[in-house]
């Protein structure tokens, strides 16, 4: 009886700990922000839109996160945020910034 109770108590704690850890992992999974310098925009039609919203060669673009299932890219240029489709992100030719 006591043994059973202890086992349940253990499982309870194990589940709680696991839930906390995974929630923290979820929240932190996006903290690795990557910075790139924009060199060139490949597709001219997309380039017109990208330039007119403020994404153009010479700017630093930060990849913040991606939507699930190969969806959109959440990026930052200066102090503004943008949603880009995969093909729009791929038309931007970049080089990684030297972090330090």
């Amino acid at each position: 009886m006591i043994c059973e109770f202890l086992a349940i108590y253990d499982i309870y704690h194990w589940v709680l700990k696991w839930a906390k850890l995974s929630l923290r992992a979820l929240l932190n999974s996006i903290s690795d922000t990557l910075e790139y310098l924009i060199l060139q925009l490949l597709d001219p039609m997309l380039a017109i839109r990208l330039i007119s919203i403020g994404i153009y060669p010479g700017k630093v673009i930060k990849l913040i996160r991606k939507a699930p299932w190969g969806g959109c890219y959440y990026v930052q240029v200066d102090q503004s945020f943008f949603a880009l489709r995969k093909n729009e992100w791929e038309t931007i030719i970049t080089k990684p910034m030297d972090l330090k």
Binding site: I30, R65, A67, P68, Y74, D78, Q79
Partner: peptide, 23 residues
């Protein structure tokens, strides 16, 4: 100023645009 404003939005978006939590 701009940094402050975008910081708030960035924080909120960490939750609201999270692949699992956001959905």
């Amino acid at each position: 100023n701009k940094k402050y404003k975008s910081l708030f939005t960035a924080k909120v978006d960490r939750i609201l645009t999270h692949p699992v939590l956001g959905l």
